[in-house]
Simulated assay, not measured.
Amino acid sequence: MAVEVKIGVQHSPREITVESGQAAEEIERAVADALGGKEPLLSLVDERGRKVLVPAEKISYVEIGAPAVRKVGFGAV
């Protein structure tokens, strides 16, 4: 199951949003390593296999959660 990750970057008005096939625990460990100084870059792989690299010193916040389910069709409001 895909996990949605939102990364806030310093001095940028927009956040980076990645849907990753990695487990939430694996992403949390990568974030902790980057923010703890073990890794200079936060490296994540999205669902299509593309790698997203963010310099650790530029990270403002990271939000890890499940992706929103897209609803199809019409429903009562």
Rank of each mutant, 00 (worst) to 15 (best):
M1A: 02
A2M: 14
E4P: 02
V5F: 03
K6M: 02
G8V: 03
G8D: 00
V9K: 00
Q10D: 09
Q10P: 00
Q10Y: 02
H11T: 05
H11Q: 10
S12T: 10
S12D: 12
S12F: 05
P13G: 01
P13I: 00
P13C: 01
R14G: 01
E15G: 06
E19Y: 09
E19G: 00
E19I: 04
G21Y: 07
G21A: 12
G21C: 03
E25L: 14
E26Y: 10
E26N: 12
I27T: 08
R29F: 13
V31H: 00
A32M: 12
D33S: 13
D33G: 14
G36C: 09
G37I: 11
G37Y: 07
G37R: 07
E39I: 00
L41V: 07
L42N: 13
L42D: 14
V45T: 15
D46H: 06
E47F: 05
G49A: 08
G49P: 08
K51A: 14
K51H: 09
V52K: 00
L53M: 13
V54M: 03
V54T: 04
V54N: 01
V54H: 01
K58F: 12
I59T: 07
S60K: 15
Y61T: 00
G65A: 04
G65W: 08
P67Y: 06
P67E: 02
A68R: 13
V69I: 11
K71Q: 12
K71M: 12
F74Y: 11
F74V: 06
G75S: 08
A76Y: 03
A76E: 07
V77E: 04
